[in-house]
Amino acid sequence: MGETLGCAGIPGAEEQALLDFKDALRIADALDVPNIHVLAGRVDTPASLDVLERNLTRFSEMTHRNILLEPLCRRACENYPYSRLSEAAAIIKKTGIPNLRLMFDTFHVRSEEDDLLGSYLSHSEQIGHVQISSWPDRGMPGPDDLSLNSFLSEVKTEWVGCEFKDPASSARPPKL
């Protein structure tokens, strides 16, 4: 992802975005996973959504796998083109790409939305993947996280991923 947090929406980076997607597709095929997460990148230009939509259309023609859009909250990522579920859902609706789905990350959603479960239920038809962490520190969820426990009891999905910061580790994940 680098410092830009992806590049699928960065004008002038279309070829790099294609190379990145082809790498992700190769890995997804090898592991037989249903989803590929595409990051738009940190951009502050109105053209970024047009670039992103063109890239998403091109990517969707290359695979049957779901392509995930993850809204990234403003407190964690400045200059990202969408921070709310409704903004990413609007991209899905506008493009009409059938395998374009939302990634529902509880940390980012909680940072931008008032009602975690209500947000999930409002967008459940468009959600392709759910991942969790505690809030507001993005740590490992614990038994005392009542709102997350309540949310998980209502989520109707086979898989839930975990993405959290381990304060005891400074290790970085291995490159694939």
Rank of each mutant, 00 (worst) to 15 (best):
His37Leu: 14
Asn149Trp: 04
Val130Ala: 08
Pro98Val: 11
Tyr120Leu: 08
Leu121Phe: 08
Arg101Leu: 12
Arg75Thr: 12
Lys175Leu: 13
Gly96Lys: 10
Lys93Thr: 04
Ser48Gln: 00
Glu14Thr: 04
Phe21Gly: 08
Thr57Asp: 02
Thr45Arg: 03
Ile97Cys: 10
Leu102Trp: 07
Leu39Lys: 00
Glu113Arg: 08
Phe151Ser: 02
Lys156Met: 04
Leu68Phe: 06
Leu152Ser: 04
Asp144Glu: 14
Asp32Ala: 14
Asp29Arg: 10
Asp29Ile: 09
Val43Leu: 06
Thr95Arg: 06
Pro173Asp: 05
Ile132Phe: 09
Tyr82His: 03
Ile91His: 00
Gly118Arg: 14
Gly12Trp: 04
His108Phe: 01
Phe107Val: 08
Asn66Met: 02
Leu176Gly: 14
Ser122Leu: 11
Asp20Gln: 14
Asn66Gln: 12
Pro71Val: 02
Glu61Asp: 01
Ala40Asn: 04
Asp20Ala: 15
Pro141Ile: 11
Glu163Lys: 07
Pro81Asp: 07
Lys94Met: 00
Glu3Tyr: 11
Leu5Pro: 06
Ala168Gly: 00
Ala47Gly: 01
Glu70His: 00
Leu56His: 07
Glu87Leu: 04
Leu102Ser: 13
Ile132Glu: 03
Leu31Pro: 00
Lys175Tyr: 11
Leu56Trp: 05
Pro81Ala: 05
Ala76Tyr: 02
Pro136Arg: 07
Ile127Gln: 10
Pro143Ile: 13
Thr95Pro: 03
